[in-house]
Amino acid sequence: MTTAAATAGTGAEVTVGTLLRGWRERRRISQLELALRAESSARHISFVETGRSRPSQAMVLRLAEQLEVPVRERNSLLVAAGYAPSFRETPLQDPAMDALRTGMEQLLSAHEPNPALVMDGMYDVVSANRGVHLLVDGVAEHLLRPPMNAIRLTLHPEGLAPRIRNLGEWRAHLLERMRGQIAMRGSAPLRSLYEEVAVYPAPAGDRHEDGYGDGHSPAAYPFALPLRIEVNGQVLSFISTVTTFNTPMDVTVSELAMEMFLPADPETAAALRAL
C-alpha cells in the first residue's frame, strides 16, 4: 500500500476518490476551493471522492497538480483511477540521465572549495564534491558506506554531531525540515528515518544549546541559521541553499535536491581556500 493510501483509506477500500480526499484533507482545503482551483465544481469533486464519478486522466492530473501531490504519488492516483502511470522512474545511472548527471557534476565542481551535495528523497547522497569530503573526514566508517545518508551522518553521535558547535539549533532545523516534507509527501520511509534520528543522543557535555557557541548569538547571523562545525581544529560557519528541479517529469528527478553550503563569514572562506 502506498503512503497516500495508508493515509486516506485506513481500514477502507482504497480508490482514487479516497486517495484524493486524503490529499485534500492533508492540504486542508475544501472541496469548493479545490474545485475553483481545478476549474471544476464542488459537486463533481464530491462525486469523485465518493466514487459516484470516475475522473478522466486529465482531471486526475489536474487535481493532483492543484493538491501539490508528489510526482511518485501522482502515478498511484492514476493507477487507482484505472489509468497507466504517466511519470517514469529512471535510475540515475541510466544513459538517458547522462546530461542530468553531467550538469550536476559541473555544478558541484564549480562550487568548490565550498561543500555541495546532491540527495534523493530519502536524503541519501548520490553525489558530493571535495568540500563535503573535507567535512566528513574522521566520522565512523559505517556512516560513509553507500547509501550514505546526509541526515543520519549529521546527527549520529559517531558522525558530525560531536563537531557541530550549534547542534541544538541545527538539529531542530533538520527535524523541522523533515517534518515539513513528511506532511507534504506522506512518506512512510521518511517518517521512519525521522523517528530514528530524532532519538539520537546529544554528545556528552552538550555545549550547543545556548546560542551558537564561541560567544556567538542568533543576532550575529540575522539572515539565515548557520551550520557551525569544527574542522581540523577550526570552527567553520556555513549557510545553505537547497535547489530542486522545476516541473519534473520523472519520479527520480522530482526527488533530487542539491544542497550548497556558502561561507557565512570571511574567516570560513579563507579557511576553505587554504584547506
Rank of each mutant, 00 (worst) to 15 (best):
S237W: 05
A80G: 02
R62T: 15
Y212I: 07
M178R: 12
H156C: 05
R27S: 14
N166R: 03
R163V: 10
T247I: 09
E169L: 11
A38L: 01
G180F: 05
M59Q: 08
G103P: 13
N75Q: 13
E176H: 11
V132L: 12
M260F: 13
F87M: 02
V118L: 08
G138M: 03
R228H: 01
E49T: 00
E209C: 10
P85I: 06
V125L: 11
S109N: 15
Y200P: 03
A6Y: 10
D94T: 00
T90Y: 03
R72V: 09
T268S: 07
R72S: 12
F245I: 14
Y221H: 04
N246I: 14
A96Q: 15
M59E: 14
Y221R: 01
G180M: 13
F47A: 07
T241W: 06
L108N: 02
H44L: 08
R37H: 08
V251W: 04
R54G: 07
T244L: 12
P263F: 04
M119Y: 12
P95C: 04
P162R: 03
T18H: 01
V199W: 09
A4S: 08
T18R: 02
V251N: 07
P248Q: 00
L193D: 07
V139F: 02
R152W: 11
Y200L: 10
V132W: 11
A80K: 01
F238R: 02
T268F: 03
R88Y: 06
A183G: 07
L117I: 10
D206E: 09
E158M: 12
G233E: 07
L236D: 01
L153T: 01
A80T: 01
G103D: 08
V48L: 13
M178L: 14
E68T: 10
V253R: 09
R177F: 08
L78N: 03
A6D: 08
G180S: 13
V79E: 11
S192P: 06
N246Q: 11
S40G: 06
L225W: 02
Q106S: 14
S254Q: 02
F223W: 05
P95E: 04
D98E: 15
E259C: 08
V16L: 03
F238L: 05
V235M: 00
P263K: 12
Y83G: 07
L135S: 01
A12D: 10
Q93R: 12
L174M: 08
S46C: 12
E169Q: 14
E267N: 11
A204R: 06
F261D: 06
S240P: 04
N129F: 09
A270W: 04
E195Q: 15
L92I: 04
D124K: 09
R179F: 13
H208M: 11
D206K: 02
A270M: 11
T154C: 06
S237I: 14
L144A: 07
Q106G: 13
H173P: 06
V235G: 00
E195W: 05
L256Y: 07
T252C: 06
F47Y: 11
R145T: 14
P263N: 07
G121Q: 02
R37M: 06
E68V: 07
E112R: 08
I164W: 00
I151H: 15
L193K: 00
Q181N: 07
L135Y: 01
R72I: 10
V69W: 04
Q106F: 09
D206N: 05
V235P: 00
R185G: 09
R74D: 03
F245W: 14
R152P: 12
H44T: 05
L236Y: 10
L153P: 04
A99I: 12
P203I: 09
